[in-house]
């Protein structure tokens, strides 16, 4: 490799000597909203490039929905609803929420891994909005949630699930799942900015995720549960999302549950997005 040192590319520019006025003119006090958005999209672009070059990142959103759908339907279908077909309308929206949650858990782990890399030193030294490195990958992750939801429905369909809500209902259910996944990802992003290592992010996230997904109405109707468990299941935000998804896919109706689910999502974002930015700043 030869390194051609072209004589100073921008030849004989007179030495720049800057005055306080020049400095004020070439800097801005903060990032505008438009700048923040464009930086976020640039970080999203980076994340999609990374996904394409590390396809194993798609395992959790491809294999898991297929496996869980088949496994839970055949395992629990007979016992729960008398037959697999009768159980599908109950369990498919449940698995949808579950996969979205697992998928957004990966967001936190990956962020933590990413932050250890040298390139983050450069991101920190650039005059970019502190939310961009967090929000960028999450926008790219929308793709992962969409894949997970579509595959879950496809697997259900192959097993005989015929959602009453029709195409529109199913599409609405997918959109809701994507929104829910994106919102909950902020909680895991926050964990990602706090924990010491990617491993501990994984551990903490599992501890949050398992009770949230399994102690919900994702796999079983609430009225089959003992009172204390039913009480938790009823306040679990995942239950709202699962019920709302069922209403959309199975009834084709935008019920009050959908409204509650969206409200829960908004609350999660409002709490955890600022916490995540604070957590990220602490790394400076």
């Amino acid at each position: 490799m030869t390194m051609q040192l072209t004589p100073p590319a921008i030849a004989v520019a007179p030495p720049r000597r800057l005055s306080a006025g020049d400095i004020a003119a070439r800097t801005t006090p903060r990032n505008s909203l438009a700048e923040t958005l464009s930086q976020t999209m640039a970080m999203a672009w980076r994340a999609t490039k990374k996904m394409r070059r590390n396809p194993e990142q798609f395992f959790d959103v491809t294999i898991q929905p297929l496996l869980f759908t088949a496994m839970f339907a055949y395992l629990l279908g007979g016992g729960m609803s008398g037959s697999v077909e009768a159980y599908l309308p109950l369990v498919i929206p449940g698995i949808l929420a579950q996969t979205a949650l697992t998928a957004c858990m990966a967001t936190g782990v990956q962020l933590r891994e990413d932050m250890e890399k040298g390139v983050f030193d450069r991101f920190k030294s650039l005059p970019m909005a502190r939310i961009a490195p967090l929000a960028g990958p999450m926008i790219a992750d929308l793709l992962r949630y969409a894949i997970a939801s579509a595959l879950t429905f496809a697997a259900g369909f192959a097993m005989g699930y015929r959602p009453e809500g029709g195409v529109l209902g199913v599409l609405a259910a997918i959109v809701l799942t994507v929104i829910a996944g994106w919102s909950l990802a902020w909680a895991f992003t926050w964990v990602g900015t706090l924990a010491r290592s990617a491993q501990s992010v994984q551990g903490i996230s599992m501890m949050i995720m398992f009770p949230l997904t399994f102690m919900s109405n994702a796999l079983v109707p609430v009225d089959t549960l003992p009172g204390w468990l039913a009480a938790f299941v009823k306040v679990n935000p995942v239950s709202y999302i699962v019920t709302a998804t069922r209403d959309l896919a199975n009834l084709g109706q935008i019920t009050a549950h959908v409204g509650w689910a969206l409200l829960a999502c908004a609350a999660v974002i409002l709490i955890f997005a600022p916490l995540s930015v604070l957590g990220y700043r602490r790394h400076l």
């Binding site: 800097t27 006090p29 030193d121």
Partner: peptide
């Protein structure tokens, strides 16, 4: 350049190019 680093990090960053001791480019 007269900009207080602690009070005005955003302006400071606009005036600097930093090449760290260890490569800070994206491996992917």
């Amino acid at each position: 350049f007269g900009v207080d680093v602690r009070r005005d990090p955003h302006r400071t960053r606009q005036l600097l190019g930093v090449t760290g001791q260890y490569a800070s480019v994206d491996e992917n």
